[in-house]
Design a protein around this nucleic acid. Structure first.
Lengths: 221, 221, 221, 221
DNA sequence: TATGAATGAGTCTTCATTCAT
DNA sequence: TATGAATGAAGACTCATTCAT
């Protein structure tokens, strides 16, 4: 397991020799699927190659090592959606409640319901074995995501639509259900039949409803 | 230049200790810690033994195989708290909102803040490699836990304290933050410093507050 | 002081040769030799590989397990000679005494003096650990061999050349010296110098002579 | 496996410290049975102890090592019958043919049909791993036995009862069936049902009959 | 480039042997 | 003496990685 320095996390975008195009997407996809399914260590390189339809040797033509493949899987699957999302929020017209709903649903469609959701499961499962990967994920996904959600909450509070709250902490009430959904989907949800949770979209809908309106009955004063 | 151990106190390497009774528990504890930290496959049997203060061979004196050890780790760390909890709920006097708060805090104290929290991370990470373990966890922990929370919500709805809701689904709004907390604690939280989330108790407090009261400002009609 | 291998000729250590076709046979031959020499359990997989000129791992490329290798060794070294032998006997012209001599000598040349003779030692030594192998050997070698010899004896009795006898049992007087020869050759004969028995061909000759003519002096009536 | 010098084979009768009496016969018996059944390497020390009704540790109180136990098994089970047998032969009154019959039957009763027969199987199976044991067996059993049989044959030849023959070699026609019988009994005979050879005594009877009288019909001249 | 046979370090597991009791 | 828990060297087998083709 790697104990490399955390700082220049994952060679930030390799300058030249961008053979990205040539580098089989199939290998990364196969690796993602298998790493998510079985874990990094329990997945054999040959399985990845086989699923990608190439031979064992070919894998190592594109990736220096299995660990290198692991990092590439993370890197390549985190295309940042945040710039676009931030843009959308800038131009969003509507209530902050709608904004929360919109953000959560958009997240489900573009991440949660995507192979990218496996990345979260993978990173969390392997975080301790790959601290630099965890740091990378934290910096490139968690922090921007947190900021985005924070903006939304703050907007609501500022406009008076939301009540006063510690937005720094409240933001995790939005993150928790997303993390939960991704973990569940790729673990219990894929095993125990009875764990086949409610429809994710309905779950999100209810979660948002509860967070916005609360469970308590309104006293019809 | 002494070749003696640096710390002359604290038992001077008590080799070959006979502790038939204590060994299994020590091995299980060591295994739990390491499996949670590194994953089942990435943990070497010898590491487990070493952490338990015994040699490689001793591990196999108590567990038939590494997989057997894995299953024992799960089994032995899931002492059912539910009978006691159900009892507490039966005699609980107070609002259903208080009940929710109480349940969540109790969970944190007795599970979330315990080595048992690692079990959840472990099971979710390895679920696909050990479907029977996942099923076991689902049946022995998830389902009873769900039922317990369901009772609370239903009590609130029945009494009119909570508004009408689909309690079957709403229950997951309480489960999600717990799962989130356990996963986070044993993954990102243990790595990236910046991921050292807010104090779990405060998170729970806020989560419950938001779920109960909602984010939206009450129209002071 | 040269660090080169002493023999500059004879392929200078041809490493990593690709010989997919030849490997299995080479491994089987190496295994046969070592299993016969040291016994199955006492032979390390790596020794077999080394003698075959390959590495540990390569062995397991061709055989699923050491036990699988064992069974393959037996199976592959029992090419049935019996059809041909039966044919020979059908067309044999001469006395039944000559037939016995011929059969015993042919056996020595084609089995006893061959690597196949090790199989008998191996099977007998390991019979109790591998009952199915023993049964296989019994069915494929012992029974057909017994039948063949039985035919010869019966022919002699039928023609009046041999005296009346219980041929079912008499057949073992021919089998015993063969088994003896194979066992001895691969055990005592290979160790204690003084156990370097008489020339096998001479032994067979004398054995046959004694069995046919008897030790007793003929009363010149 | 041992590569000790062959010469002073098996410390020839340890002078003092004859704790022979105290040394559990049970352990030697258990070891013999198991070594014969499964081979030396495939037999675990603990099994021997268990069968002898003692604990693992006790075994090593009496024998320095498993290999030491092996040698003791051989040594202790070869009580020399030859002095007595030689005596019997000296006083034997009767034909040399009867002498052969007598010797073979006596051997069966006192060796072949005894646990001692397992020794032969054991020694032959392990000869190459224990050359000194093989040499010991050769010197203490095979050579004396050969000499004994040689005496018988020579007596017959000298008296004119047997025809002229190379007695040095002819002796093996008597040894072969004994070796065969012992090997068979402890290998194929103990496995494949169909290999449950004819009654050993009948086999010996027929073998002797054939060797003495020959298979060929006597020309009634 | 692609292949897959070959390699050998690494891991699980066994078991002869030791030693505290 | 006897026990059996503990040890650790050794062996079967795996799999990331290399390299001849």
């Amino acid at each position: 397991m790697s104990t490399e320095p955390v700082s220049p996390s994952l060679e930030p975008t390799p300058k030249r020799e961008r053979r990205k195009e040539a580098r089989p997407r199939e290998l990364l996809d196969a690796a993602l699927a298998l790493f998510v399914e079985k874990g990094f260590t329990a997945t054999r390189s040959e399985e990845v190659a086989a699923r990608a339809g190439v031979s064992k040797g070919t894998l190592f033509l594109y990736f220096q090592s299995k660990e290198d493949l692991f990092k590439a899987v993370i890197r390549e699957n985190i295309g940042s959606l945040f710039p676009a999302w931030n843009e959308e929020l800038n131009t969003f017209e509507g209530s902050s409640a709608d904004m929360v709903k919109y953000a959560m649903n958009a997240w489900w469609e573009r991440v949660g319901n995507t192979a990218a959701s496996g990345i979260a499961k993978l990173v969390m499962s392997e975080a301790q074995n790959f601290p630099d990967v965890a740091a990378f994920y934290q910096a490139d996904v968690v922090v921007p995501g947190t900021k985005l959600l924070h903006r939304i909450l703050q907007r609501g509070v500022d406009s008076g639509e939301f009540r006063a709250m510690d937005t720094d902490k409240a933001v995790y009430t939005l993150i928790a259900p997303m993390i939960f959904l991704m973990m569940w989907k790729h673990s219990m949800g894929a095993c125990a039949a009875s764990a086949n949770i409610i429809d994710p979209q309905k779950f999100i809908h209810m979660q948002v409803d509860m967070l916005l309106n609360g469970m308590l009955a309104r006293s019809a004063s």
